[in-house]
Nucleic acid binder design. Structure first.
Lengths: 211, 211
DNA sequence: ACCTGAACACCGTTCAAGT
DNA sequence: ACCTGAACACCGTTCAAGT
């Protein structure tokens, strides 16, 4: 009765948290379970299937069923879901490599999409526009979390020699004008909140009729 | 003088276009160049360095220097850059796995960021807000292109048995109310344009003073 | 039903040796 | 300077065999 597949996914998740996604090989996973690599294939179709299972585990963890994110008006619920998702990726940065690769197809992923749909309907967004706005918001939220986890928002150690070259050639005019604001480090928590409130304003503006 | 590194990147890009990113191994790449795998390490630090070089090649291709995307007012330039980026990823879908992994650090990536900075400044966005809006827009645009290329926007073949189960249990209320709009297939070209115009409206609204 | 052992066709990378 | 050969320590997966 104790589903062997679940034990395998437990071990894979622990391995990924401890040593990163690259450390999750069929062989290493089998070792950790005290079993031969081939024994895994009885419960998992392939390594790709294993990774799909891993992503699903993460989504189970964050979908709001009887949690804070399920309370409040539509804006609270939408922002709550976004914050919970970001926090989940922060605790499992290895997931960044997987999150953009598969459609939201598992029952739990569909449930998360449904929370967004319901929030947008409650906000008064026309039904025709809801799926598009859902994709837009989820694309941004996943993108932000993945960018953070994979270092895309990191300071960016540009080769100073080349940078100076670009500056002197009269290039990078934008960077030059923004110099006062580019030196201070970014508070990504505050930035995420500002981005969210911008997106909520955008949702609100979609409830009014437009040409 | 003929830089050997450039020949290697040419071959790697061709290999990726023909057979996908997984086919780009040091051994296969060496084979294609008629050389021993170890010969590559004279011109490339590691496989990671090779992949960074590949991404850079893509960015060189799309940064607007004397092209359509460099013309027009700020909104045209911003939308042009987004469209060109999306088209680039569409022609090289293997890049999807790499685009979120490294900060925009190479000279060409910095140039692309600068085009966005300049557009936002011209739009009248306060300097303090420009870097945030640049990250927000680029995160969305990269996320959209990557989602498309990696199948996240694909129809989503949910297991019908499970889906029915969820429907009958009174779950997925959002999906149920949206059924009329969820059956027709999505025109992603039109959706991308609508998303872009929403983002441009958001930029405009940031030029007005807010609390 | 569930697991094992041996094997196949691959990886990235190091190191000493060649010219 | 540039390349090679052999080797190390890995991969995912197939297939026949064991209990």
């Amino acid at each position: 009765m104790a589903d062997r597949r679940e034990e395998i996914l437990d071990a894979a998740l622990a391995l990924a948290d401890e040593a990163g996604l690259d450390a999750v090989s069929m062989r290493a996973l089998a070792d950790r379970l005290g079993v031969t690599p081939m024994a895994l294939y009885r419960h998992v179709d392939s390594k790709a299937d294993l990774l799909d299972g891993l992503v699903d585990r993460l989504l189970v963890a964050f979908v709001p069923v009887n949690t804070d994110a399920a309370q409040g008006d539509w804006a609270d619920r939408l922002a709550g879901l976004a914050r919970t998702f970001r926090r989940t990726v922060q605790s499992h940065p290895w997931a960044a490599q997987l999150l953009f690769s598969r459609p939201a197809v598992t029952p739990d992923a569909v449930r998360a999409v449904d929370v967004l749909y319901s929030a947008l309907i409650e906000a008064g967004v026309p039904g025709r526009e809801v799926p598009r706005l859902e994709r837009m918001i989820s694309t941004f939220v996943i993108g932000f979390a993945v960018s953070e986890a994979s270092g895309r928002f990191a300071p960016g150690a540009v080769d100073p020699r080349r940078r100076r070259g670009q500056f002197c050639d009269g290039e990078l005019l934008g960077h030059r004008r923004l110099a006062p604001w580019l030196d201070s480090p970014t508070d990504l928590n505050a930035e995420f909140e500002r981005d969210l409130s911008d997106l909520l304003r955008l949702v609100e503006s979609t409830t009014r009729e437009r040409p």
